[in-house]
């Protein structure tokens, strides 16, 4: 089998640039997606069904349509509408965050609903408002339960970030495609990118496990 490591070595600077951008996309989208997801999850759980409806529609739309299509619509539709031209960084982070938020919202909702009703009752019986009870009693416990599911979502997000290569965002997958196009050899670029994604997701997994252990001993 001829596997040309020399070609990968030639292309290493681009893989490095791409990897850094992939990390950037992933970290930014994980942070924004989680914050947004928490808010949407809270919105979904509002007792007033009419107020909760838009949040449910949001989750349905973003979970029910392909991320690839969302990326295209945001890149070619929404972003030019707001800033007058396309911008891969804004489009990429926006699409990944908005998509991830829908999943985080559901994880969050499941985490809260898995808690015993008695926790909320105990907090309320002590005179806490609904918001105080959520803030000090419910969310901290739900968050702990959410970590495995959130970790899974983060890993999916890192891999999904490769989809922004379709709008020519110069991240890891983009350079993998570009290298394939330059040398007309598929395995070197694709296995290299796969290997780098694997390392990124393993690091993410490692960090989450560490966090999980720390929270468990608290």
């Amino acid at each position: 089998m001829d596997f040309r490591f020399d070609l990968i070595a030639n292309y290493a600077p681009f893989f490095l640039k791409g990897t850094l951008l992939t990390i950037g996309f992933s970290v930014a989208s994980i942070i924004l997606g989680t914050i947004l997801g928490l808010l949407i999850g809270l919105g979904e759980m509002m007792r007033n069904k009419k107020l909760a409806a838009p949040f449910r529609v949001y989750v349905t739309l973003f979970r029910g349509t392909p991320l690839l299509v969302q990326i295209m619509i945001i890149h070619f539709g929404f972003v030019p509408l707001f800033i007058g031209e396309t911008n891969v960084y804004i489009s990429g982070i926006a699409a990944l965050s908005l998509n991830s938020a829908a999943y985080v919202a559901e994880i969050f909702r499941a985490g809260i609903q898995s808690l015993d009703r008695g926790q909320m009752e105990a907090a309320r019986s002590l005179g806490m408002t609904h918001v105080q009870a959520m803030q000090h009693v419910i969310i901290p416990q739900a968050f702990k339960r959410m970590i495995p599911a959130l970790g899974n979502e983060f890993i999916v997000l890192i891999k999904d970030s490769s989809l922004v290569s379709v709008i020519a965002a110069p991240e890891l997958m983009y350079w993998g495609n570009a290298m394939q196009g330059q040398y007309y050899r598929p395995w070197e670029p694709y296995l290299t990118t796969a290997f780098i994604y694997l390392i990124l997701t393993m690091v993410c997994d490692f960090l989450l496990r560490k966090l999980e252990r720390r929270l468990a001993t608290e």
């Binding site: 015993d116 008695g118 926790q119 009752e121 105990a122 907090a123 309320r124 019986s125 005179g127 806490m128």
Partner: peptide, 17 residues
């Protein structure tokens, strides 16, 4: 909430945090 400050409650299943 104000009234509940004056009414303590103890549950069958404790409901400690």
């Amino acid at each position: 909430n104000k009234i509940r400050e004056d009414v303590g409650m103890v549950f069958q299943l404790f409901n400690l945090f």
